[in-house]
Each structure stands twice: as structure tokens, then as C-alpha cells.
Amino acid sequence: MKKTVVAAIFAGLALSLSAANYLHIRTDAGWTVLDLDNVDRITFTGGNMTVTDEKGGVLGTFKQAQLQSLHSDEIAGIAETIADSGEKTFTFDAASRSVSVTADGDFTVYDTAGNVLVAIPGVKKGETIDLGALQPGVIIMTNGTHSLKALIK
């Protein structure tokens, strides 16, 4: 009988298709989503939180005083806060890969297979969400009943 480990490659694939692969950072200025595969280290010096990759390249710098929360998973238990208004609840700027939230709600990004890539419960009107770190591909963004399909190049 022969026994071999087969998980590593497949597990990597499974993770790359879920929200678990993205670090969601909330600050007073809005949300930033970073690809966890690129994140190697987080340091706290000089009043800043600096996120760097394996080579020391800076992926993001955030003022500590403005930091609110972090998560890397679908957070359960948050109730929907928006009713169907029939209006846009966010806008997406493809050039900057940035979302501007125009109504409170739960913001989610899916890939075309239905996997949740980004899950931000309780986004507030006026907040921005930086999706610059998303991997290339077609995504579907939703907030309340408003959804938008976009191509990340």
C-alpha cells in the first residue's frame, strides 16, 4: 500500500479562490483589500502600519491612528442593513480599481464561479474600497440589491 500527501497544491488552489486569501483592512478613509499571497510582514513603527512583501516592497502604509479593523474571511452574523432602493449603492472606478460606497450595506465581491473574494460587512455611505490587489479576472460586486460586473486586468 502506498500513501502520498496530495493536499498542498490543491489546498493552495482552494484558498486562492476564497475571501480567505485577501486581507481586508478598514481605516477611517475606507477599505483596502490586499492579496495575502503577497503579504509577508506587517510592522508597526513611526505611527504607521506598513505591509510588505517577501522582498521588502511596500504593499501599503496606513496611519495607526486611522486603523479600525482587519479580517480575512467571510464574517458571519452581520444582518443586512439595506433595503432594495433600486438605486446604485456604489460606483466602481476601473482605472483606480476603487469602489465608492453610496449607501450602507454589506459589500461582497464574487468571482464568476460564485466564490466570495471580498466580504465587507456593514460598509457605510461615503467609504471607499481599494480593490487594487485583486487578481486579474472577471468579478461581480454587490451591495444590497445593486450588482456590477467588472474585468480586473
Binding site: 480567505a20 495575502l36 508597526f44 502600519m49 496611519k63 495607526q64 491612528a65 486611522q66 486603523l67 479600525q68 479593523s69 482587519l70 479580517h71 480575512s72 474571511d73 464574517i75
Partner: peptide, 17 residues
Amino acid sequence: NLGVAEMMQFADGGHTL
């Protein structure tokens, strides 16, 4: 473990998590 950690909240001006 990030799956177990759930939501992580900053406090004290970003000096505690």
C-alpha cells in the same frame, strides 16, 4: 489562525489589536 481569528479590531489609536 486567520480563519479562527475572525474580525480583528484596532483600539487605543491603532496601538492594540
